[in-house]
Amino acid sequence: MNGEVGIRIKEKNIYVPTMVPILEVIQETRDIKTFRVQRPSSFFYHPGQFAEIFVPGKGEAPFSITSSPQEERFLEFSIKRIGVVTDALHRLNPGDSVGVRGPYGNGFPVSSLLHSSLLFIGGGIGLAPLRSLINYVLSPQERINFREIILLYGARTPQDLVFQWELKRWAEHRDLTLWVTVDQGDSSWSGIVGLVPEVLKKVVEVEPIGWKSIVCGPPIMIKFTIKALLEMGFQVKDIITTLEMRMKCGVGKCGRCNIGPYYVCKDGPVFSYQELQEMPEEY
């Protein structure tokens, strides 16, 4: 909030965004772009949290923060073009500004992940929230707090893989084992072909004790991946996922994102599979 208004009002209006410039735009796939924007002052967040992005004249929408909290200067969002706000965002260039308000949501339960091995499983744009946590745990300060780290990432086609530059970096990172798969390969693709849950059972051989799995992606992928993880012997409390609901306020007030008595914007979007099992199936 700018200083002048601050003096007059003193209290903060939670719905008013801070306008920040876009620093960089990266075309990830045909319909996904990553936006690097200036990090507003006193915007402190955890991996797995999200923010509401405001495009003046168009509206607001929630997006996962995909950058690691250790990045001090900027925030990153990877955004798929699908409707009014996302369409408008895709037309913006570095130098244009957008509004940001947040951070919202609970984020990943980092403290309960400490000293575990982590199996990240992402599908499509679902890698966005995972990326924040992956880079956080890979950072030199945090690395010693976690054991083995595996990432299995899948997309429909090789053209739909996001963060290709990041994937290259991760592939070379000695602390992370990376598996990338596509549902349908093409002539350019020499990697694995297959649906995530199937590939998971084939390539990832872990003894689930001491492991936590963090799954994020389209609902159908989440459903079958969780099934596969349970077959592999994962405990329901060791499987963590994020949910998506239509959102507006982001702070548990507008009433639209609830599943049973839980507001996904406030009590989520991160839930363990154990918690999900106790919730009504309405998402």
């Binding site: 719905y15 003046p56 004249g57 168009k58 509206g59 607001e60 507006k248 306020c249 007030k253 507008c254 009433g255 639209r256």
Partner: peptide, 8 residues
């Protein structure tokens, strides 16, 4: 009932 929308 308190539900609301935010729109432009």
């Amino acid at each position: 009932c308190y539900c609301f929308d935010l729109s432009v």
